[in-house]
Simulated scan of single mutants.
Amino acid sequence: MTTAQKRMYSYLFLLPAGIVYFTLYLLPTVMSLFFSLTRWTLTKWEFIGLENYVMFFEESSLRIGFKNTLIYAVVTCGLKVVLALLLATLLTSKIWFKDYFRSMVFFPTLLSTIAVGIAFSTMMHPTQGVINTALAAIGIDGPDWLGNTKLALYSVALIDVWKGVGIATVIYIAGILSIPRHYYEALKIDGGSAFRGFWHITLPLSRPAMNSVIILAFIGGLRTFDLIWATTRGGPGFSTDLIASIIYKQYQAGFYGLATAGNVILFIGISALAFPLYMFLTRREVDL
């Protein structure tokens, strides 16, 4: 068999994956770019150039949506990074029923996001919800978690953290367990405390896992839609509208080309934020 034949034989193994990638990813991306320049329905289309992009940036709620999206991404990412690290440190220490607690932390990740949103909408009801009922039992007047314009976005962010902290914890656990044990043994021989072990060993050597959690949580926060729609549908007013929910509302209204342009803008925006963050984190990881 010649070298060219061997190379062709190798490429044949890549062909099925290439077909799947082209069909499910590359082709829809190219079609989205094209249809974002058109006014289209399910049966016809009309090329209008950049008009959809101009209209999208003129959307009255867009400024609020950009602000809410950044706040939501930063809050959920920050809380997941910190809480997951603390949980992973606890769940890799010598405690009873460690495996049981690990499964409990990971369990919310397995639940449907829509189901979680509906459940918490009921639990956070201002008068009949179990949360405010429990607070009233100890003399605290609970707020309207999802109906207060200043509180609703952060309430949904907390739900997101509750659901997503499990996968971040698993990533941290994998990172912590990969740290050689002799570092901790040396610290113990020198009389170091558990806090010093965490600060000088666990924290710096789990940096690769932390970087993964930051990237995944930040991108997830920027593209969140389902939890927002299941809890508040962007309300009250525009107080919890994110870019993704604004795009969906355009689809609902029948402005398919405008919504497609919004998706392209969302993709570019996420890439513009996530890629420099990834480069910064990986550069620091190499420097360490």
Rank of each mutant, 00 (worst) to 15 (best):
F34C: 03
E51F: 01
T43S: 04
L42P: 01
I64G: 06
T29D: 03
E58S: 13
N68K: 13
T41A: 09
E51P: 09
T38D: 04
L62S: 10
L50K: 07
N52D: 12
T41P: 07
F47Q: 11
N68I: 02
W40Y: 12
G49I: 03
E58F: 03
R63Q: 03
L27E: 04
E58N: 06
S32W: 04
M31T: 14
F66K: 14
L27F: 04
L62A: 06
S61N: 09
K44H: 10
L42Y: 05
E51S: 10
M31F: 15
R63A: 03
I64P: 05
N68Y: 02
S61P: 05
F56N: 11
V54G: 11
N52L: 03
S36Y: 03
F56W: 08
L27H: 11
V54D: 11
P28N: 00
M31E: 12
T29Y: 01
S32K: 05
L42F: 15
S32H: 04
L62K: 12
S60L: 13
S32I: 12
F66A: 10
F47Y: 09
S32Q: 13
G65Q: 10
N52W: 01
K44R: 08
M55T: 15
G65F: 08
F57P: 03
S61W: 13
I64N: 02
F35G: 08
T43P: 04
N68H: 00
T38P: 00
W45N: 09
E51R: 07
K44W: 12
E59G: 00
L50M: 01
S61V: 09
F35C: 07
V54E: 15
L26D: 14
R63T: 11
W40V: 09
N52Q: 01
T38Y: 01
T41D: 01
L37C: 09
T29W: 10
V54R: 14
R63V: 14
M31I: 12
